[in-house]
Design a binder for these strands. Structure first.
Lengths: 250, 250
DNA sequence: AGCTCATGTAAAAGTCGTTCACATGAGCTG
DNA sequence: CAGCTCATGTGAACGACTTTTACATGAGCT
């Protein structure tokens, strides 16, 4: 009957030794499969080979496990965005777009994290640590927007960086939640989510008066060679599009 | 002890008479309060004054109740967007912005519907009826984008309407989910979600080459008086902003 | 009046989340 | 090394929820 459990026990002894981490990993897998709503504390325990009560030695309750995952998610998110931004190299606009792609790549490649962070209904603002982590991630976008705003062409009024950051965030989040994940991803789109977001951001930047065919006007020359991209997306048009940010205008 | 239940029974007899509707209403209230994840089939039954098994005479399971709500949500959403669009009156750009505000207003005023539709993890594309309803709602945005695209100024290449529609949708959804609801709404923003979205859309449209200080160039004159707005938002700047779509540039 | 079937009920099985008293054994202390 | 301690894990139990099943009720038709 229960020789399976006995065997498990035999293999690892009464004490698991690394249960907290095992639970986090198990939960991550389960959330990726069935979403944060479908994920079960008992399931995670089973998967780790311990009783249903064991997890309570490491997490106050199910929500705390979820929060821990969201926390980690925000940290990884931040580090990904930081890498993508790469302090604005080789030029601000290019780096800025790379951040947008990194956002989508994260949502696509780490569905469990993204789910826990943004789609689990978890009250982020009720948890100071979580809120701080979320803030830190957002600050990357904010910093990038700041740099971009500083490049505003002479004729145009300088847009508020905070507003730009919020706009970019909402575009990224909107594209990610609507088109880049789950079932809505199956909707037949005229272009990939990556291209959709890139076009959206480019049009937006142009609306602010930024030249959008790479390498903005101001400032001294920056190192021209493009470093290896962190995420290998679906491939973007290499040069600047002559007509518009989207493909051929029919 | 259970005279309460007996009394209920006495008031309405063995048969409820309108249980399906009562359950939908109860669920709507519960979802608005605690989110789709927290909503419970048993709770809805209790609220309607029937046993926990009764709902199964009207819905295959909990998910079907949720789907029904989402379905209704999409229908109301569609009719709201339709009203806001008002076939492009008094002019295309004004009507277009009204659609954006209607999107936010719906998310704010009908949190239960919005939650069921977009945040419940419900597999919309697995349910043909739901998918169709969602499609119909999106088609309003699509139609509006189509009309807008047709107004593209002579110099600019005509943007694909479908792409524009997807962009607008993602902006609206992004702003709504990030800033216009739940806990994230508490984040201290430099402007209201409505203003944020309006600025975002205006900048975007300007990026496409549209004149954004009301009343676009082309076409014959349309009736000038602005009809009463469907949603009384937080108040927009009345005329065209001289500097930019956002407020004063510092 | 009597039938029938949609609609409601109680009871029961299975799952979860959570708590509690108790078991185990890793690591320290003498 | 004996013994102690405390972090970590167990099993049993409670209440809530979902869903199924057999049975009850009564509204509407004949």
């Amino acid at each position: 009957m229960s020789w399976r459990k006995e065997q498990r026990r035999a293999e690892r002894g009464y004490h698991h030794g690394n249960l907290k981490e095992a639970l986090l990993q198990a939960a991550l897998g389960l959330i990726a499969e069935k979403g944060a709503a479908g994920f079960t504390f008992a399931d995670a325990a089973r998967m780790a080979g311990v009783s249903a009560a064991a997890p309570y030695r490491h997490f106050r309750d199910r929500d705390e496990l979820l929060s821990s995952i969201a926390q980690r998610g925000f940290e990884q998110f931040e580090s990904r965005l930081t890498a993508a931004w790469d302090d604005g190299r080789p030029d601000t606009v290019t780096a800025f777009e790379r951040v947008g792609r990194a956002y989508l790549a994260f949502a696509r490649e780490e569905p469990a994290f993204y789910n826990a962070m943004f789609e689990s209904g978890l009250p982020v603002d009720a948890n100071p640590a979580l809120q701080a982590a979320s803030e830190r991630a957002f600050n990357i976008i904010r910093a990038a927007a700041e740099r971009l705003a500083a490049l505003a062409p002479p004729g145009m009024p300088r847009p508020p960086a905070m507003m730009m950051a919020l706009h970019i965030w909402s575009m990224s989040h909107g594209v990610a939640s609507l088109f880049s994940r789950g079932d809505a991803a199956r909707r037949k789109l005229p272009m990939s989510p990556d291209e959709l977001l890139e076009a959206e951001v480019l049009i937006y930047l142009r609306g602010l008066g930024f030249p959008t065919d790479r390498r903005p006007a101001g400032k001294g020359a920056e190192p021209p060679p493009v470093p290896p991209e962190a995420s290998s997306g679906s491939g973007m048009p290499p040069g600047g599009a002559p007509a518009g940010p989207w493909g051929k205008p029919k």
